[in-house]
Design a protein around this nucleic acid. Structure first.
Lengths: 156, 156
DNA sequence: ATTTATGCAAATCGTTTGCAAACCT
DNA sequence: AGGTTTGCAAACGATTTGCATAAAT
């Protein structure tokens, strides 16, 4: 059920600082969004995000998530479904992870690979990109398949 | 300028067969789309695709690309830009590749990594996914950065 | 002839934006 | 007060769809 208190406090501090750095205010609405994202623990869509909080305006959610994305505390991931998904940015959470994308229900979960593999991938990518004039900044590695719930509902 | 003739012929045969298998017809409109995609050699948006062919109806392009995607000869990739992008499916072209995504202009190019690395990645992913009840089917590995043209325009 | 694909125009739906009221300092 | 954020409603834009026509078998 969420993460320890001090993590949350630190998270909020970090977000506030980032916003301040961009001359933006950490309003209560934004705070709520950050908390919802933190509780979710995986990339979720805005409808999912707002369902338990009917008083949060849709437009404010979009606007604030855009702001939070610009200051680098939230990242938007697209993955093909009808809604974009949002999660706390890697920089803020302090981990580098990838995504399990369920092609049946659209659910997205985070996962990590051993850092040795991560390094292997990075090296290979750097080399592959060096062929072209492309300047790589980051990579994105997703697994596409069927999540547990959908596999049970279908296969078994 | 495109690929050798016999490849194209084989491509068309393959597409026709796949469509036939789904009780669909390989109409001239669909043939044109396949040719355009083949010539492009990288994932392109529908506007890009149709720009040189103003007589092709937008709705037909969308409809036909959806059909072609369903029978597995075209794949749609999303990557965050405003338009989805389409390319000939790996199954049809016969290679497994990844994408270089320019975050400045949205351009997407294909690239491949050595098969040894590909295997490493696959192994690591299989293991990582085995923790959860997720059933992986394929993976997606993209490099995000700046393409040559945009790098020149900005940095140099 | 009958079935399927096409093109146009209208509808859809996620997301964005204009504007006036509410908020914070 | 002065500047910002919020909420509502309207606008936007990519994609989809209804329907009548054209094409293919």
């Amino acid at each position: 059920m969420g993460r320890p208190e001090r993590d949350a406090d630190q998270l909020h501090r970090e977000v506030r600082d980032r916003l301040k750095g961009a001359d933006q205010i950490y309003t209560s609405g934004r705070q709520r969004l950050i908390e919802m994202l933190d509780e979710s623990g995986r990339p979720i869509t805005i409808p999912e995000l707002l369902a338990p909080h009917p008083d949060v305006a849709l437009s404010s959610a979009y606007r604030n998530l855009a702001v939070l994305e610009q200051v680098g505390v939230v990242s938007r991931i697209v993955s093909g479904g009808e809604h974009a998904r949002f999660e706390l940015a890697e920089e803020v959470v302090g981990d580098h992870h990838h995504h399990l994308i369920c092609q049946s229900c659209g659910r997205v979960d985070d996962f990590t690979v051993p850092s040795s593999v991560e390094r292997t991938i990075e090296r290979a990518l750097a080399e592959a990109a060096s062929d072209s004039s492309f300047v790589a900044e980051s990579h994105r590695l997703d697994l596409v398949g069927t999540c547990g719930a959908c596999a049970t509902a279908t296969g078994t």
